[in-house]
């Protein structure tokens, strides 16, 4: 399966999903006006990737800002991974990186970790 890459810009994040290593990385800012359109290829790739059972997956989440519309899409991604770990014996870990001073991104991470049943590491970056 092909790896997936989106080059980030001011309002869209860099996305790097590696099918071989199972490392999924999202970094930057996300405030596209039409997140359903922007995230569509991301969901399509994940749908295909998550067909095979028992994979080890690491989601490295390195966002510094996202709007409410993206926040919904991220919950959808996390829910997909949660379902995968439960139904297809996946081994999924989420690493939530945030700048150490950024109380808002920390709180966001805490809220997502309460919302999904996945190993969730909150990692402050100095």
């Amino acid at each position: 399966m092909e790896n997936f890459h989106i080059e980030g810009s001011t309002y869209i994040p860099r996305v790097d999903f590696n099918a071989e290593t199972g490392v999924l990385e999202i970094e930057g800012e996300s405030y596209h006006e039409y997140t359903m359109e922007f995230f569509k290829p991301i969901f399509d790739w994940l749908d295909e990737f998550l067909v095979e059972s028992g994979l080890t997956i690491t989601l490295n989440f390195k966002m510094s800002y996202f709007n409410t519309s993206s926040s919904r899409r991220f919950l959808e991604i996390l829910t997909m991974l949660e379902d995968y770990s439960k139904e297809k014996s996946g081994n999924v870990t989420v690493n939530w990186y945030y700048e150490a001073h950024d109380v808002d991104m920390q709180e966001s991470g805490e809220e997502y970790s309460d919302d999904v049943d996945l190993p969730f590491n909150l990692i402050p970056v100095e």
């Binding site: 997140t35 359903m36 709007n67 519309s69 919904r72």
Partner: peptide
Amino acid sequence: PGANLGFI
């Protein structure tokens, strides 16, 4: 297209 979360 919105998330219905803006006001909150």
